[in-house]
């Protein structure tokens, strides 16, 4: 997982780079190089097609560069803005293509989510429960799935989730726990 919490000095140093790039688009190159891989992987996990992920990543950076003059510093990392654009592009792609939305995760991540929902986990029934869990995830809305992906499948902190989703950290926590509670109820019903 490529996630790393940025310190305030790092965020401010990045803002200085953004300000330079706002004056001269050619100076966007260091930001592009730094964020390309995380953004590419973020998109790939939700698209699962290498070439398409490359195209959408290029579109995300092109739009970021085009709208860079509108970007204002609000104490958030620049990457949060890029992730937000990426999420919009992914949603736009699925709206147009009408394909099934891809959700990628590791067994470990799914196990963690399963543990969070059910306290007592029996190893024998684990596989069956994971199947039930996947069926329950089907009932989540697009926005709820984004929270589950960011928190459990990508292991992001609530601070990062809040930055990407443009909510407060507390709000991100509350929303995530409400989704967990909803999943728990769906599982009990099954």
């Amino acid at each position: 997982m490529e996630t790393k919490h940025q310190t305030i000095s790092e965020i401010e140093a990045e803002w200085a780079l953004v300000q330079k790039a706002q004056k001269d688009p050619a100076l966007f190159a260091p930001l592009y190089t730094k964020h390309f891989k995380p953004i590419f992987l973020f998109i790939f996990r939700r698209i699962s097609e290498e070439e398409l992920a490359g195209d959408i990543t290029a579109l995300v950076f092109s739009k970021a560069l085009y709208n860079l003059h509108q970007y204002n510093y609000r104490g958030l990392p620049f990457s949060a803005w890029l992730y937000r654009i990426a999420l919009n592009e992914i949603q736009g792609y699925y709206r147009q293509s009408k394909k099934e939305r891809v959700v990628s995760f590791s067994s470990e991540a799914l196990g963690m989510l399963s543990q969070d929902i059910r306290e007592e986990e029996n190893a024998q029934e684990q596989e069956e429960r994971e199947q039930q869990l996947l069926q329950s995830l089907e009932e989540l809305s697009e926005e709820e799935m984004v929270y589950i992906e960011l928190r459990f499948f990508e292991g992001r902190s609530f601070k990062e989730i809040a930055d990407i989703q443009q909510v407060t950290e507390n709000n991100a926590k509350v929303k995530t726990y409400r989704i967990i509670e909803r999943l728990r109820k769906i599982l009990i019903r099954k």
């Binding site: 590419f40 560069l65 891809v102 995760f105 995830l137």
Partner: peptide, 27 residues
Amino acid sequence: AKYKFKKESKEPSDEFIRSKMDFNKIL
């Protein structure tokens, strides 16, 4: 189905990701 779940999907190599980087195209 609304979602297509992919467990343990293989991520592209660093070389592939680097090959997709093209700043001139972005400009």
